[in-house]
Design a protein around this nucleic acid. Structure first.
Lengths: 213, 213
DNA sequence: AATTATAGTTTTGCATACAAAATACATTAT
DNA sequence: ATAATGTATTTTGTATGCAAAACTATAATT
């Protein structure tokens, strides 16, 4: 038997992946024994992993009823976007304060492959988008901010509602953020982040209104 | 035996209280069997509660070593303050957007008992201070922001470092925040929040520098 | 005397057993 | 046929058993 120091960690990673890929569908009930057997562990480390995912809002616990893959509503998604505005603005402030030129350059590089292209590969762009926002949090070098960001990781599932805006549209905004950070202009960077998030939020609000008709 | 739907909830509350009051001291190791017996439960619901507290950064887990009451460093406290700036600015934005006049008035009322007093009772003021900041989060009516705020609840333990600033000094700032929200002036409210937090952060940074000498 | 080795103890992390709650199913009554 | 009731099954939440890791204390070695 393999000696593991913390079985719940690989289980956590695996479950997260299964949720992200849709192998576990939103709303799906997670039967402990069944899942535990599938992953080859007992219910103890499985539950520990599920609790972590619950804290990240990827999983929902209904007491005495069970655990379910979280079904993210448009309302919640809007709430998440409101939060991210605060989180990312704080992050860019900190980056401008403490990140090196090299680090900031690596930020912009995330999008350089797309600048000259006419037809942007959506999947690739989406990955770059995610990494860009992740990197903003990383470069702020604030572990607590990172944890808060993880808490709203469900925002990455916004794609379940389809791509909100075209890459050509958001690419400009992403570059504007990176450029403002590069010249260490806090006000401009904050405004660029706010504009970027607000635009996407607007789409969500429109969709939300449509849904309620 | 009393029928409980979720034993870990009361255990969680109890532990949180024990940490807040200092019955469990920062840095103290939490021995599972010992604590479980003391609280009259088994290790299973105890561990569930401890994991929740770990996510809130009130408890720290060292793998294979055990759980410890978190010892908050000045560095971390500064990180928390940086985060709270983002969180609370977002909150006041949302409050101005969606809170009723009545709700906003209740915010300011938190400090009305202190306005005319010459000598402010520190303990009472501290409680009002906590409730004021809690209420800012509540009134934003964003459950995810609330969770993020809970994640940085350790900031409430800043008092371990002594009262950072005099009530007479911060009272003005608190009222300025409330007033700006009252007249629904976003820019002013945001600036008031930033000024308030930055002032306290400055003290922390000074203390931190002193410590490193 | 200080450091290392070793035996014994404690404590963690995982697996599992078990009772109570929730759910599914079948039987009866309307 | 539908609703209601009772029974069987599944599943959760808690307790507990057990092996391996970590810790402690004592003895051995330099």
């Amino acid at each position: 038997m393999i000696v593991q120091h913390d079985l719940s960690k690989p289980v956590y990673d695996h479950l997260k992946h299964m949720i992200k890929t849709g192998e576990l569908q939103p709303g799906q009930k997670l039967i402990q024994e069944e899942l535990a057997e599938k992953l080859g562990v007992s219910r103890t480390p499985l539950m520990k992993a599920l609790q972590s995912l619950e804290h990240e809002m990827l999983v929902e616990s209904k007491p005495r009823r069970g655990m379910y893959v979280k079904n993210v509503s448009l309302k919640e998604m809007i709430d998440v976007y409101d939060c991210r505005e605060g989180i990312e603005c704080t992050a860019v402030r900190l980056i401008i304060e403490r990140a090196s030129v090299k680090e900031i350059e690596s930020l912009k590089k995330k999008f350089s492959p797309f600048i000259k292209e006419k037809e942007i590969n959506e999947a690739k762009y989406r990955t770059a988008d995610e990494k860009f926002h992740d990197m903003i949090i990383e470069l702020s070098k604030n572990p607590i901010l990172k944890r808060m960001s993880d808490l709203s990781n469900i925002h990455k599932r916004v794609y379940h509602y389809g791509l909100l805006r075209s890459p050509s549209e958001t690419l400009k905004e992403h570059l504007a953020i990176a450029d403002a950070i590069m010249i260490r202009d806090v006000d401009r960077a904050v405004k660029a982040v706010q504009a970027h998030i607000d635009q996407s939020k607007k789409i969500l609000i429109t969709k939300s209104k449509e849904q309620n008709d």
